[in-house]
């Protein structure tokens, strides 16, 4: 199995405080990793480091074998940032234009939009069920609709690795279920590797093949069943909490 993400002795600092410490793990092709942990545990920092948005203090992290500063496989990576709190609601762009931004990674330079690009945008719009609002301005949409636009932008290149940072926060229950089903089908049918940051351990346990529990360091990395059976996790969380998490999953 090809290694998609690998971290070796990876540490990260922010304002002299260590945010992530000595991480060692591998994510293989086709894995569906639920990245969980309390607030401030370093989940977003870890995925930003994978994308080269944050520098490492020690060790290294590689995606598709490349250090983030030398990454050559951007088109294979689909990224959905944490909810766009800073989105300028007056930004004068249509849904179609914003989804098209995801194509840049494979275009490499500003060039005319080709027929294949238009088809890719149409596919992403259909997949996320927003074809009907493709002509609307982003600021005219609800929070949930905006989130679906950003999901479409992450999917437009048909990536091999999907990095999703709390993607379901603004979604209503039905859309959230559809989104989980969509990501699950991409993982199962197209072997897309998924790294899914969430606080919802019960739901992610239903879908993820692995759970990476982070709290500045790796507390647990393994399958959900292993997590539920682990005595050390029962000790760490307390037996009742572990039972609740695992019960929700079942």
């Amino acid at each position: 199995m090809q290694t998609v993400v690998s971290a070796q002795d990876f540490s990260c600092r922010h304002n002299s405080a260590e945010v992530l410490s000595d991480l060692n793990f591998e994510v293989g092709e086709g894995d569906y990793v639920g990245l969980v942990g309390p607030n401030g545990s370093g989940k977003t920092t870890l995925i930003k480091a994978m994308l080269g948005l944050i520098k490492s203090a020690k060790g290294c992290i590689r995606v598709f074998g490349y250090h983030p500063d030398e990454q050559q496989e951007w088109p294979k990576i689909g990224y959905l940032p944490q909810k766009h709190l800073s989105l300028n609601q007056g930004f004068p762009s249509t849904v179609r234009e914003i989804v098209g931004l995801g194509l840049f990674a494979r275009k490499k330079s500003s060039s005319r939009i080709r027929e294949t690009d238009i088809e890719a945008i149409d596919r992403a719009l259909e997949l996320t069920n927003i074809s009907g609002i493709s002509h609307k301005l982003i600021g005219d949409l609800s929070g949930g609709q905006q989130q679906r636009v950003f999901i479409a932008r992450a999917l437009v290149n048909e990536p091999k690795l999907l990095i999703l940072d709390e993607p379901t926060t603004a979604l209503d229950p039905e859309t959230r279920e559809n989104f989980f089903a969509l990501v699950n089908s991409l993982n199962k049918e197209k072997r897309v590797t998924v790294i899914f940051v969430t606080h919802d351990m019960g739901t992610i346990g239903k879908y993820a093949s692995k759970l990476l529990y982070l709290d500045k360091r790796i507390i647990f990395y393994g399958s959900f069943d292993e997590f539920c059976r682990s005595d050390s996790m029962a000790h760490f969380f307390g037996e009742s909490s572990q039972h609740i998490i695992c019960h929700k999953h079942n």
Partner: peptide
Amino acid sequence: FYFDEIFSMTFDEEFAKASG
């Protein structure tokens, strides 16, 4: 010449970086 790059980073600088 840099239209796509400029558009992308004007909309979302972090995503633009993550697009290479």
